[in-house]
Simulated assay, not measured.
Amino acid sequence: MRAISYKPSVASFADFDIGAEELPIVSFVGDDEEWTTNEKAIEDALGGKGVELNRRVEEGFWVVHDDDRPVLANRWLLVWQRLSSGQPSKRAPWFLQLSGIVVTGGFSWASDGLPQNVVLASETVSPPPFNPRELRFRKAFDKVLRSPVFSDLRDNDVPGEAWHFHRQQKTRQFWSAVKQEYLSAV
């Protein structure tokens, strides 16, 4: 996955509006997940193939459950890397900008080879909401994410259940707590 390197839409997380109607979704990727793009599914769904469509799958995000589709569509996603211990790695989180297009069977996990659905990355990328690599933000983000209050944002998926749909309110509380921690570190 490519980390967004465009100039953020606000200079600092201090200026980020945590009261906005749609906040970035917070999610994770594992540190040992290997997968393969299903080029036939991409070609069938989008009528083409090539490097750009593969990029959109690679920078897209796994749709675990149908209820997650409307939550993920056309949203910013702040992704962090989850270690096998369930804790965040030291790697800075990064933004993905998602489209509203879901490709059924767009990729497969190497572990089981079963087709998985993916919401594609946006065709064009806008400036991200803020710079997630800012050291003060990273410290606040990490501290809040490790808090027991937000353990369900670190939990692995429950088979057959939506992941993002049920965590929307918790995500809003999470952004508020990160902002509070960020501002208290001044």
Rank of each mutant, 00 (worst) to 15 (best):
5 S>D: 15
5 S>T: 12
6 Y>N: 15
7 K>M: 11
8 P>W: 05
9 S>R: 08
11 A>P: 01
15 D>G: 10
16 F>I: 05
16 F>M: 02
16 F>C: 01
20 A>Q: 13
20 A>H: 13
21 E>L: 07
23 L>M: 06
23 L>N: 01
25 I>H: 00
26 V>S: 05
30 G>H: 15
33 E>L: 14
36 T>G: 10
37 T>E: 00
37 T>C: 09
39 E>D: 13
43 E>W: 09
44 D>I: 15
44 D>T: 15
44 D>L: 15
46 L>K: 02
47 G>H: 11
48 G>Y: 10
48 G>A: 10
50 G>C: 04
50 G>N: 05
52 E>F: 07
52 E>M: 12
53 L>P: 00
59 E>S: 05
62 W>V: 02
67 D>H: 11
70 P>D: 09
71 V>A: 09
73 A>K: 09
73 A>Q: 12
74 N>I: 04
78 L>K: 00
78 L>D: 00
79 V>K: 00
80 W>V: 00
84 S>T: 12
91 R>L: 06
93 P>V: 01
94 W>V: 01
95 F>G: 00
95 F>C: 03
96 L>W: 02
97 Q>W: 03
100 G>D: 12
101 I>N: 03
105 G>L: 08
108 S>F: 04
109 W>A: 05
110 A>D: 06
112 D>W: 11
113 G>Q: 10
116 Q>M: 15
117 N>C: 04
121 A>L: 07
123 E>L: 11
124 T>N: 13
125 V>Y: 02
125 V>A: 14
127 P>R: 04
128 P>K: 03
128 P>F: 00
130 F>W: 06
135 L>E: 10
137 F>E: 06
138 R>V: 03
139 K>I: 08
139 K>R: 13
142 D>P: 02
143 K>N: 08
147 S>I: 02
148 P>M: 04
148 P>T: 03
148 P>D: 07
149 V>M: 12
149 V>W: 10
152 D>I: 14
152 D>H: 10
153 L>S: 04
156 N>R: 06
158 V>P: 06
160 G>W: 07
162 A>P: 06
163 W>A: 01
164 H>L: 09
164 H>S: 01
166 H>M: 13
167 R>P: 02
167 R>H: 05
168 Q>D: 05
169 Q>C: 15
169 Q>I: 15
177 A>F: 05
183 L>S: 08
184 S>W: 14
186 V>R: 12
